[in-house]
């Protein structure tokens, strides 16, 4: 098997343990997460807010050091390099942000912001950088003359395109897209998803697509990882996870997304209550407090990820999982 481009191995992250005066208890935002992204592969990372999905994205980019475990990028351990070496590696991995209204510097023309990545890494300078920046704008579906404008002169969808152009400028191999469409209109969402799928195909980009919405992942990602309270609940090929979920949480998440067909209205919300605080996660299975199928033994031990029968499809549920679809 070829080594994956990015691999997180048993990654955990605890917040709030530092500080002499802060009396807060440490919060484990992410625990025991292992995941890989192969070259040119798009992986979906799905979960509710507070599930630690953005934290994982930042750990994979080396922006946030993990408290435990390690991250390998093309064989290089990101937890062991820093300073200039890490900055040089940044060229190969980029981030697309959720909110295009705050991810662009309001005081600088968009062309200059795109050209930044080129000049910093010595890929182009001066007029060449300006020309390349204009070309990147064209690649994401905008006009070259837009380079002279300021961010506030664009709509949300157009700004997200600029954010993507900025990320592409350094010629990365790996892109983390942190909820890139959730702040956008439906039609802009479809445009950005189509653009990302197209870029992945044309440039062979590896991608971690973070979303709280399973349907958004369907057409972009070949694999999907479902996260709850900082832990992986289920992972597998998108097709397998979305059509036959083996963890009750995945099933509830799927059932929560409203359907376009008015005839298929739900009677009631599939998931009651809210996620528990990560500061005091439930014992045993972290999902058991909201799970309709919880058994007494779910309190005892944290269930490990187990193969479900389909290759690569694994779920962290002690039950067989065959009736999870009924959740």
């Amino acid at each position: 098997m070829i080594a994956p481009l990015v691999a997180a191995e048993g990654v955990g992250r605890v917040f709030g343990q530092r500080g002499l005066f802060s009396g807060r208890r440490p919060v484990a935002a992410v625990a025991e997460v292992s995941l890989t992204v192969g070259r040119g592969e798009a992986v979906g990372l799905v979960g509710e807010s507070g599930s630690g999905k953005s934290t994982i994205g930042r750990i994979l980019l080396g922006l946030l050091p993990p408290s435990e475990g390690r991250v390998l990028f093309d064989g290089i351990d990101l937890t062991r390099i820093r300073g200039a070496a890490l900055r040089r590696l940044r060229r190969r991995m980029q981030l697309v942000f959720q909110d295009p209204y705050v991810s662009l510097d309001p005081h600088r023309r968009v062309g200059a912001q795109i050209a930044d990545g080129l000049t910093i890494h010595g890929l182009a300078a001066g007029a060449a950088a300006t020309a390349r920046a204009a070309a990147f704008l064209e690649e994401v579906g905008l006009q070259p003359e837009h380079a002279k404008r300021y961010p506030h002169q664009f709509s949300g969808g157009q700004r997200q395109r600029i954010g993507i152009a900025r990320a592409l400028a350094t010629g990365p191999d790996f892109l983390v897209a942190d909820e890139p469409v959730s702040a956008l209109d439906v039609s802009a969402q479809a445009q950005i998803l189509a653009l990302l799928a197209d870029l992945r195909r044309r440039r062979g980009l590896a991608m971690l697509f973070i979303s709280h919405d399973l349907p958004a992942v369907r057409h972009l990602c070949s694999r999907v990882v479902v996260l709850y309270l900082g832990r992986v609940m289920e992972e597998g090929s998108t097709e397998a996870v979305l059509t036959s979920p083996r963890h009750p949480y995945t099933a509830a998440l799927l059932a929560s997304a409203p359907s376009l067909d008015p005839a298929r209205r739900r009677r009631s919300a599939p998931l009651r209550g809210e996620p528990p605080s990560p500061a005091k996660p439930p014992t045993g299975c972290v999902f058991r407090t909201r799970c309709r199928h919880a058994l007494p033994m779910c309190e005892q031990a944290r269930p490990p990820l187990r193969e479900t029968g389909t290759p690569g499809h694994r779920a962290a549920c002690i039950r067989d999982g065959s009736d999870a679809g009924g959740a």
Partner: peptide, 21 residues
Amino acid sequence: LDYVEAVRVLGVHPTRIMLRT
């Protein structure tokens, strides 16, 4: 703010982030 994080992701040196962004 995200746009400061964005230039960090680009691999910009801290001095330049402070002065330019």
